[in-house]
Amino acid sequence: MWPLLRAVGAGALAVAWAVASYFNSASGQPSGWGVALALAPLSLVAVVGLWRMPQRWLAALMALLLLGLLLWMWPLMSQRIATLYFLEHFGVYTLLALLFVRTLLGPGEPLVSQLARRVHGGVLSDKQVRYTRQVTIAWSLFFVAMVAVSACLFVWAPLPVWSAFATLLGGPLIAAMFVAEWLVRLWVFPKEERASFSETVRAWRAQRSDNER
């Protein structure tokens, strides 16, 4: 019951953040509250990362430097709320694109192939290798497209249109991508050769934990 409640709570919090972010970024008005809201996810990631650092003195020094930079930049950011949200959205999706693309260009396996090996005990058929590479390419193109559309809308579309895309549609589009890939997987592979959705999530979490070490 606890994992379900935690998932529901996290989902509700994400929806509330997205809606509040939409109204803050779409207005384009100066807002200190908007800065705090925009930086909340990245701040949480930074706090967790600093907390996990074994060198406490270095973590404390970096925290002070980040806090000083934040206080110094706060007046400017509060006057450029929409730009702040755009830079955050652009940066996050660019990093996600690079996460997938770099595994296609390097000597190792594509990212989705690595995840699939975790699920299937380290052994993949030739068909699974081809499929997981194609899925990695699909996710790479998806995130590149998100970056490109975001940039084009921010430059040429009315601000509320870009804001709706960046804050309200990002999560649903990623969820739709997951569902579409899962449906293709159902069609391509028999039951014994495909991973369930929960197994995929567990593999992703294990991969992310390994990357953080």
Rank of each mutant, 00 (worst) to 15 (best):
M1C: 11
W2D: 06
W2P: 11
V8Y: 04
A10Q: 09
A10Y: 10
Y22L: 02
G28I: 01
Q29M: 08
G32E: 12
G32W: 14
V35R: 10
A36D: 02
A40Y: 15
A40K: 12
A46L: 14
V47M: 15
V48C: 15
W51E: 10
W51D: 12
R52P: 07
R52I: 13
M53P: 09
R56L: 09
W57M: 03
A59M: 00
A60S: 10
L61M: 03
L64N: 06
L65F: 05
G68K: 14
L71N: 09
W74S: 00
M77F: 13
S78L: 06
Q79S: 14
Y85A: 10
Y85L: 15
T94M: 05
L95K: 13
L104N: 01
L104R: 00
L105N: 03
L111K: 01
V112L: 08
S113Q: 14
A116L: 05
V119Y: 10
V123K: 03
L124D: 04
Q128P: 01
V129A: 07
V129S: 08
R133D: 12
A145L: 13
M146P: 09
A148W: 12
V155N: 04
W156L: 12
P158Q: 00
P158N: 03
L159R: 00
L159G: 01
F165V: 13
A166E: 06
I174N: 04
I174G: 00
A180D: 08
W182G: 12
V188Y: 15
V188C: 08
E192M: 02
E193S: 02
T200R: 05
T200G: 15
V201E: 11
R202M: 09
A203K: 07
A206K: 05
Q207M: 15
D210M: 10
N211L: 13
N211C: 06
R213G: 08
